[in-house]
Nucleic acid binder design. Structure first.
Lengths: 262, 262
DNA sequence: CGAACTGTTGAGGTGGTTCAATTCACGTGG
DNA sequence: CCACGTGAATTGAACCACCTCAACAGTTCG
């Protein structure tokens, strides 16, 4: 496998930032984390942070590494977003919560993801919450727009990232509007593992999977109770095993057939 | 009202193009339709087509006006999209159809709308179908990317358009995942009329509304039968009247309360 | 140990679907 | 002019996918 899967818990190096005060200090450090990051080609945060040395001084990027605890709200809707952030390590959820407590999770954010379509918005309509402990890097919006204008390649990566984000939520809308509970859960799991594995999903291979059933419920528009039933059904059918936040798909084609992915 | 509502059927001027062959011929005409178009400020197609005279020759835009019949498929998924198009007149739907015939409409495209987040995609995951007779204008992708790179304002309008498209489908996903049938239908209608009216919805004012109940059903994830029941309920409650493709909201605050918009 | 949270399982309820029949509007051809 | 066909909308009756409520087990953590 070319892409490493998300490591279970432990941070990869000793430079992890523990809080905002430390993060600001780190901003000046010469060897920024992004330089040593294993994020795949074609991701926006990689395009922004690699090859910087060849560029003129004014195209340099301010990078502010931050950390977040489990369940911490990274961004709260209807507040000025300030910076754009990329997920470096851990899982997060983009979500909307209604006045009466109903909640819809719109997307799972994995390492390398940026909420990018909102670069020019003054207020976002969603919030972002950490699922696991999180490491993120913040970028100044002005840096990003300047870079896009100066570099056709960055514009293309930015445009592709917008398109990918739209495609993802379009798929979610189709699932929510027109697919059964079994299809939704199957497709959600396969979609996440597909991204985790760099599009090479392996059978009988353990993948870190920190989502709780209530997270899955709010992603699929179901109740946690019904998610439990569907997962039990999958488990009893020998399709997958999910224990201790580790997912093993034991019958990949079976799971894909349920999700109409084959 | 600052914005005219979509005129019922008749084309606004005599230069409408009837087919592709004619469209290519029109391409050379000096007075392009976009110059005389009433599309509002802040729309991407307007930013692209106004102020061209001051720009250098290489930033000029090729504009190909086209027409489409009712129900015609404008773009079919998984084919190279070629051009980017803007809706000039009429209504269209962005949708996904599954192998077994289930269909989810993802967005209503009104005059001024462009499927813009897909500028850098080689294959789109959705299709587009005309609801009414349609007039669209096609732009070459290369022209658009060149313009974005050369003009910070166009980049901003482009970015805002991407964000608006994402916000729209996010809202749809929340509706589909977490709202009741009544809420979905109410919000859909109010959202469309809000755009039609330039964000100044009037009570007891007739708006062109060419969507059939099956279109509404595929937008809200319901069946046409249930949409009929919800619409009857709204009608009997004195909230709205919808006859001959013309919608009149007779109790705006009541409809907004059902949709939790107030 | 107890508190809090996650997941499981059962029983009953409901919002929306499915199937089917009927009406209505509209266009078309005789 | 009417007869006819077609597609949209309406309405009723039965059904089912998923929800709600509730009890309970397992795990983690202070």
């Amino acid at each position: 496998m070319s892409n490493r899967t998300f490591g279970a818990g432990a941070l990869r190096n000793g430079t992890a930032i523990k809080g905002d005060a430390v993060a600001v200090k780190q901003q000046r450090e010469p060897d920024l984390p992004c330089r040593r990051c294993g994020i795949g080609e074609g991701r926006l945060c990689r395009a922004l942070t690699r090859g910087v040395s060849q560029m003129s001084k004014e195209c340099q990027f301010r990078q502010i590494p931050c950390a977040a605890a489990e369940n911490e709200i990274i961004y709260s809707k209807n507040t000025p977003p300030g910076d754009i952030f990329a997920v470096c390590q851990g899982w997060a959820l983009r979500f909307v919560e209604l006045a009466d407590g109903r909640r819809q999770n719109l997307a799972v954010l994995l390492p390398g993801d940026i909420c990018v379509a909102t670069l020019f918005e003054d207020e976002l309509h969603f919030s972002v919450q950490a699922v696991t402990k999180l490491r993120i890097t913040r970028f100044a919006r002005a840096d990003l727009t300047r870079r896009i204008l100066s570099d056709a390649h960055t514009l293309e990566v930015y445009g592709k990232a917008c398109a990918a984000q739209l495609r993802d939520v379009d798929e979610r809308a189709v699932d929510l509007g027109r697919r059964s509970a079994e299809e939704r859960v199957s497709r959600l799991i396969l979609g996440i593992v597909d991204r985790l594995s760099g599009h090479r999903v392996l059978q009988n291979h353990p993948y870190a999977f920190p989502l709780l059933q209530r997270h899955i419920a709010d992603l699929t528009g179901l109740t946690p109770v019904h998610v439990s039933r569907v997962m039990s059904e999958f488990r009893n059918a020998g399709l997958l095993r999910l224990t201790k936040r580790s997912l093993m798909i034991t019958n990949l084609t079976g799971l894909e057939q349920i999700g109409r992915l084959n």
